[in-house]
Design a protein around this nucleic acid. Sequence first.
DNA 1: CGATCCCGCCACATT
DNA 2: AATGTGGCGGGATCG
Length: 878
Amino acid sequence: ENIFDRSRMAPKTPIKNEPVDLSKQKGCTPERNPITPVKLVDRPQPDPWTPTANLKMLVSAASPDMRDREKKKELFRPIENSEQSDTPDSLQYDMVDDSTVDEFEKQRPSRKQKSLGLLCQKFLARYPSYPLSTEKTTISLDEVASILGVERRRIYDIVNVLESLHLVSRVAKNQYCWHGRHNLSQTLKTLQEAGELQYGELMTFFQHKEQDLEYRFGERKKETISDSQDRPLLDFSEPDCTSASANSRKDKSLRIMSQKFVMLFLVSKTKIVTLDIAAKILIEETQDTVDHSKFKTKVRRLYDIANVLTSLGLIKKVHVTEERGRKPAFKWIGPVEFPGKTDEPRGHSPTSDPLPGTQRGASAPYQICARKQRFTRHASFNGAQPCEGTRRKVSSEPNSPRQERQDEYCSKMINLAAVCRQKIEEDTRNPSITSPLPLLPVPGDSDFCVNPLPQAVFPVVQADMPSLSLPNGISSQALHPSTPAASKTENGKPTLLPNQPFLCFPSSSLFMFCGGLQESNLRETLPTTGDLGSRRAEAQAAVPPAACQKRSSHKCESPSAPVNDEEPAAKKQTVEQRDVPFSLVVPKKPFESPTTESTPGSGCTSAEHLEAFHLDLTSPAAPEAAVKESPKPLDSQEQKKQSQNKDPDEPSPGKEHISKENAHQPFLPQYLYVQPTAGLSSFNFLFSANPAPGAISLAASQLPSLSVPCVVVPSAALASFPLVCSPAITSPLSPVPDGSFSAAASMNFSMSGLASTMPVFIGTTAVVTPKVSPAPSVDAQQPAHPALHLSPMLARSCGAVKLDSPVCMGHPMTLLKLQQPSSAPLTPKSIRPARHEAFFKTPGSLGDPVAWKKNEGNQTRNASSVQRRLEISSTSPD
DNA sequence: CGATCCCGCCACATT
DNA sequence: AATGTGGCGGGATCG
């Protein structure tokens, strides 16, 4: 706890280790705090410890990393930080007079300082995220407990969760083995698969709106399934470790719960799970009987788990605003895609798709299908296996409502479906708030899975931006008249809806670029061509005029497609966040960290980061978002249709509205989220880049250029209204609000070889068009496309600047300027590296080291890992 | 006052 | 029986 403050002055103050004494001291015994450090004592502690000694250990062990973590934490919990950090006084004083300061500190040992989340960070700080395979780090619970100054009990809480994700494994009594995150993606993948089996339908289904329903149903289902399967699934991983024997133990609910909790995120379209839903789902007991107390207890546990997951950077706390109100929830910010996935976008053929036009979106449909299948499979599976054999808790235990029959399961599912249907119908009736989109009629049987998707989309948005809302009218218009059709898609109009990817940016500060790459084209077509024509992405942002009211609009209707986009986006974000530690993570807090800041002048460097972009908000005042549209908005629809075909082949420039294609399956739009740096604080960017490596592969030839639709909005503006960007379907929109603000801009990204580093240059076609062409292959680019129209607004509001951003990459960049005078800080997050693993890695480790290195204060980070190691090693000896 | 969640009792598992 | 684990929920804090 101390650490916080001390991080800077590490060496100093002795006190804190022990919470206990804190309590004692609080009064005013300032000066001498240090003296008897009571507490630790409890533990058998051999070591010599003097208060100081402990401190030293702590400091040494944690310092570098700790800071990072702390920062992260800060992100998560701004308040805390502020407070602590505030204490500058303390620092100063410390210099002078420690005791005094300490006192103050002591006075409020604040509960937070002892929080599990913080503790977990400390814990994690002690071990490298990616330990060398060679080194096997063993963790002694007692040791850690004493070092961290907490009771062992608390360590169990942490370790149990970590174990559920396989970051550690139990080797022996009191001994755990640290694995780090090497296998995290694999684990998550497994959990995701398992989760789909168990919760997929539900989550998908109801996710947002129907949460209520979900709860009810969810519970049942889960139970059923979970029994038989959970164990196995969960356990699967365990075997590897010695601990297998451990299985017999009572059920380790915390571990299982943790896994289930993670599964919910992985299965969730929105990647947001509210606590209450999770609790309900996780309560295996009798569905109906959800006692209040039990529920409460479950929630408590979830908080424990959530704290750990938060410390791991896998989730973050958010609030979901629903019809009913605002509820606490957590959003998954970890990796979303897993390499190994069986389902590859490309492979899968739409053919079998049960869902007709519904989803053009690349992955979404796919997933759905998969889910169904599994589901089915699953059901049978259950039936086949009676799981009673496995052990359950002792009979004596109070609760053991477990055994369910598969039959029941089926029936439940049916019920569920029915209920859902009802729900939907109801909703439909009251489209008012809830469902902007018409819900699909759900066929009783099978479809649960399918239908859900569309809905899912919304929620996502909501979550983030409660504040934003589109007026209905607007939304409908703007978005798409057709939108509603989405549901209909099945019926008749398939395509449109789905295609559209909309992005809503909830948070005021976010900036998103959405775009899909045309991968398909790329792949098939020559890279070059692809490049060129490939992409223009259109992005639209519709900004409702101030007049617009904020409403539920957040739900912008978005066809399923959007959903897809979103997901990826989420992923990306996550990834990046990881990479870029702090800043990314917490958008809210702009970090002014030096890191990002790129000065205007910095050529290459800046390039590396997105800094290349400079955004100046020219017109901050102009809240309206400026959007650029790609040249052919109109076509988009048609194209969409075509897109259905999915033939990407044609690179034809004109047509290739990428966006649509994007929507298709192949590519997932990637988003890059750029954190606002100091200057940028006001903005956040999301870029959608191609996630798929596949896409990248295309690029491989050289520079693939991607066009991404982007929207730049001043945060302020956003705050006031919601933005929606539908890359795909811009055209329709264009008419809408038209002139006022939305402009669609197409962005092109060129990436060199791998997307990873490339400096992205964003060219607004319109603006810049002409210029950039450094990239050879690229030249073809259509970007030049005259097509762009900038809305007047844009034009005005933003000055497009072309830069050659010659970034190191040598790609040209275009910058948009928004009025922001100040240096635009950019937070460039580098584009995320193509590889999955990269996600996890620290920024330093990211694939494109080069790029990274520079800017950020990364050094810190980069160094940190190294340092960390060193330190640890040094420490360990002790 | 509701949301969080620390604390540590105590049951159960393992040694 | 001793000790390791970890469920659990009272009640303190936080917001």
